[in-house]
């Protein structure tokens, strides 16, 4: 399936900051389920945009600006070709063995409640079954509300109403508490009914012996399909965040996001 993404973020500053640094993880890399046809990042001001790669193999761009601006717009435009791989990830850049993805992070720390929940759901099941059961139980037991404030796995689990980001954190925490390596994926998702979207999409990947890395999208209770565009991966949101930024000086910042994810026209596919 050919999917077109246009993702524009505008930062409005009450008082211009004297400098801005951002690390962008906004560029997907090829794997068997995804081929990048074209993809670019466009800025509305002259700035230094240095491409690179982080330790996890994600493509990153470092944006630096050292002069005062009232506003800044970062746009991503691109097209990818996707394939349904049954949720199994193959041919992706892997820099670490699965064991690394058992690391505890503040955002994915499993408290007793999550541990008990995970153990109860998994029972005596095999790894793959456990993961599907976890995904199902989280999908049924938690309400997704994209306006819920960002928090961490333990608090999100207690709150029961969470954003997709923290639902993913809960899934990762639960999987790791069962000694299953798990990680955070950020990207986009094509929704038939919703071309205009509010934000990108997040899901998890867990490592299954024999299969490798398998995706679990708890918000939708399914493994990633050809509708999922995998962009970046990390131990938690912070490692896969589309944007991590910092500014010096200035006052409050306001954000305007416009995102469209749609199927590219058929003739363009030929």
């Amino acid at each position: 399936m050919r999917i077109k993404v246009e993702h524009r973020t505008t930062y409005l500053y009450d008082e211009p900051p004297t400098s801005i640094v951002q690390i962008l993880r906004l560029t997907p890399r090829n794997h068997e389920g995804l081929q990048v046809r074209n993809w670019r990042i466009v800025l509305d001001h002259d700035a230094h945009l240095a491409p690179g790669e982080d330790a996890f193999g994600n493509t990153i761009h470092t944006l630096t600006l050292n002069r005062a601006l009232d506003d800044l717009t970062v746009s991503v435009e691109g097209e990818v070709e996707t394939l349904d791989t049954g949720g199994v990830l193959t041919g992706a850049a892997e820099r670490f063995p699965p064991g690394l993805y058992l690391r505890d992070t503040p955002l994915t720390h499993a408290d007793d409640a999550i541990k008990t929940f995970a153990k109860g759901v998994a029972g005596k099941r095999e790894v793959l079954d456990s993961l599907h059961a976890l995904m199902g139980a989280l999908h049924d037991g938690m309400a997704v509300d994209e306006d819920a404030p960002a928090t961490d796995a333990a608090r999100a689990f207690a709150a029961k109403t969470v954003g997709g980001r923290d639902l993913t954190h809960v899934f990762i925490a639960a999987a790791r508490s069962l000694a299953i390596p798990a990680r955070f994926v950020s990207g986009y998702m094509l929704r038939e009914d919703q071309v205009q979207q509010k934000s990108g999409h997040a899901w998890a990947e867990a490592h299954v012996p024999g299969l490798g890395w398998v995706g679990f999208d708890a918000a939708n209770a399914l493994s990633p399909t050809e509708a999922h565009i995998r962009v970046a991966m990390g131990l938690d949101y912070l490692g896969a965040a589309p944007v991590r930024g910092s500014r010096n000086g200035g006052a409050a910042e306001h954000l305007q996001v416009s995102l469209t994810v749609g199927q590219a026209r058929r003739q363009q596919q030929n």
């Binding site: 330790a55 996890f56 058992l102 690391r103 505890d104």
Partner: peptide
Amino acid sequence: PEELVWQNPAFRPEMTGV
């Protein structure tokens, strides 16, 4: 043992390859 590295909070994956 591998887990003493991979799961060591003081190990910084970001430094791999630097």
